[in-house]
Design a protein around this nucleic acid. Structure first.
Lengths: 399, 399
DNA sequence: TAATTAAGTCAAGACAATTGACTTAATAAG
DNA sequence: CTTATTAAGTCAATTGTCTTGACTTAATTA
């Protein structure tokens, strides 16, 4: 037995894992339900009153929760509800897109405190990274002006950009952002900002935003169909964002539509990029969204055409997502003008039959989430908050 | 605040959760790596030597692990490897199919000790349940004859049958087993056997088998494409079987193949049922598999035709699975004759381009798993073992 | 033969949840 | 108005589980 093949094993846990989990469970409960008393928390989490009391004391002295007015509930001593303190934590979110970059600052409950954007120069990462670092620095300055403790309570920087990551090389597919995908973004941002950095694709980021403050709030099984320059699905499976073995799960835009024959990726038919192409719009045009909004609201013939073909493809995508994931709901979201997403939703109905047609359904099969150019940046910012405060299996384990 | 809306919260954990997790981690490590010393386990699980020592002592006195010959590893005291005791636990697996039922008994490491099958009468559950209960009783008698302690160490009964579950009603689609799907199987089996019963669809069961003793052994992100009478995908995501919000995740056989136009479910084109139909074979024929084997080995024209169309659909399915789940590997398995599955695998090559074409790949994109009529029953039996002994987030939580 | 290295044990300690009795503050009943 | 009841929340002791650091054992190497 002198071989040194690595031993594969899951990590064990100890008291600190237990305690970390229970703290996260409290925070999650307050996020999902709003203010709760210690007794409520004890019942909901199945912990004892005493344990909850200790944890709440601790969270309070850490500045993460605070008590509200006591309330009388009938007989018995009035209860004291506790709520999350928005200023308990902050995070920066960064979206890197083809032609521009956005940065945002959020607090513990998901309020957006600062938002800034900048055009990205065409030179790719070598010139773009300077713009990005400046933008982040500016966001931090603004944030400090609003909340003086923000720097001490900054839990990290979440970055979002189009995937997929780690591939062999895509040739020069203009749909991709190959130069950025190969750039050591994480390391560069970490050094340049001194923050903990995490990176996700844009659909995953939008999904985290939906879970924190949107349509997936409190749901443990939800899929967001994200329509941006590309198309992706963000997966909330078992209460956690699922990103696959290599971080590319949900890259549904790359799915080929037809079996055999000439097959096109979904992304080439139903994304904003395909819309720009169809309407010969310039993706770098700063008035793009206004133009699209106007075209939709005046029922322009060509955009109606595009919506109809895109809706057919998306209808099928929803069917596929339901069939494969069996989620509680599918959420249509995107960094697209709200009016366009609403129009898509309407045009997608009626949905294809699927196993999601349950007799006991309480949530709609398909609903609109945030449709806002800033949702990716918001989700990117929510990422570090979620990593730090949401209950997760990995948070229990050692190391 | 006198409303009584239910409070949604995750469950907390305590010492017992910690300890339960660490025990499971040990067992998992021994299952994946074979025999390991206490020191090895301590390093791999990041627990202290002392903790590992205590847990191993406990597992040993519970009859779940046992020591092997000490081995000299160079300097230092020789180490004592510990291994799982096969007789440490047993489980019964049950497969209910359209025309027959199979029952199996396995031990802790996945050895099959008993296998029995019976024809199911055409009368559906009302008459079939008697046959099934008798079959289970017979398996238990045989098991007791082999392992006298088996009854005390029986952790449960896992049942597997074609999904989907809990739907509104499928009309009388002959592909479905509607009467069985509506029958209160779980309750009836629990009462009839006195065991803990769990139910899964056949693809999920086959996947658990692959994870325990097959191609997914030790992998945390793998998808099994299961080809049986129907078609389904079994999902190992983040080291656990994922079954969706309502237990139907992976029912990929219901996925419609084309966008718009006349679209057929995958299941109607690439399943064994479609093969039987194509070749006008009787699904209830006891010599079915022998016939198919012969047809494949003699390269019968019509089966070659079927394989080619099915392979095209399955090639696309693999592409889709890779795109959506980003797994470490896709495993082709089924309750079909091995030779047919092998033939399908060969015919499916070359695979479609996808993000699974990674430069750093160590596992094949697609591989054959168990292809054996008994794999579903085996996986059904592995279910209760996995539930009882594998590390899982839910095992840590209270209640 | 002595030094070194590694496996494994012992006993005390630390940490976090649990337990059960107690306090507080409200409503309901007589 | 008084007393019983109910529920929130605290106190202090206890329990369960992992950790720590010193120690023992048994091998190889110098």
């Amino acid at each position: 037995m002198n071989d040194t093949r690595p031993i594969r094993a899951k990590s064990g846990t100890n008291h600190e894992g237990t305690s970390a989990h229970n703290r996260r469970v409290m925070i999650d409960a307050l996020r999902v339900n709003g203010a709760l008393s210690r007794a409520d928390l004890a019942r909901a989490t199945r912990l004892t009153k005493q344990t909850v009391s200790n944890i709440i004391d601790e969270l309070e002295s850490d500045g993460l929760v605070t008590s509200r007015q006591t309330v009388r509930n009938g007989r018995g001593q009035p209860s004291t509800p506790y709520a999350l303190v928005p200023e308990g934590a902050f995070a920066i979110g960064l979206q890197i897109d083809r032609h521009m970059t956005r940065a945002i600052a959020v607090d513990l409950v998901g309020n957006v405190l600062v938002r800034l954007e900048a055009k990205l120069p065409s030179g790719g990462p070598t010139t773009g990274i300077r713009v990005i670092l400046d933008l982040i620095a500016a966001v931090r300055r603004h944030l400090t002006a609003i909340a003086s403790q923000s720097e001490q309570r900054l839990v990290g920087l979440g970055a979002a950009m189009p995937g997929p990551f780690g591939l062999a090389g895509n040739g020069d597919d203009p749909w991709m952002m190959e130069a950025w995908q190969k750039f050591p973004l994480l390391e560069t941002l970490a050094v340049g900002t001194g923050l903990d950095v995490s990176i996700q694709n844009d659909a995953a980021a939008a999904t985290i935003a939906e879970r924190m403050v949107g349509a997936a709030h409190g749901l443990d099984h939800a899929v967001c169909l994200y329509i941006g320059y590309g198309i992706g699905a963000g997966l909330i499976l078992g209460g956690e964002l699922y990103t696959g073995a290599y971080g590319n799960a949900g890259e549904i835009g790359m799915a080929l539509l037809a079996v055999g024959g000439k097959s096109t990726p979904l992304e080439h038919r139903a994304s904003l990029a395909s819309l720009y192409q169809y309407l010969s719009l310039d993706p770098a045009d700063p008035n793009l969204y206004v133009k699209i909004h106007d075209l939709v609201s005046t029922e322009d013939r060509r955009i109606v055409e595009w919506v109809e073909t895109a809706a057919a493809d998306l209808r099928w995508s929803v069917h596929l997502i339901e069939t494969v994931f069996d989620p509680q709901t599918v959420i249509l979201c995107g960094s697209a003008p709200r009016i366009l997403v609403d129009r898509l939703l309407v045009t997608m109905g009626p949905l294809l039959p699927s196993l999601a047609e349950r007799p006991d359904r309480t949530v709609p099969r398909l609903q609109v989430g945030m449709a806002d150019p800033w949702s990716v940046a918001l989700g990117a910012a929510a990422g570090p908050i979620s990593l730090e405060f949401d209950p997760r299996y990995a948070a229990i384990l050692k190391d």
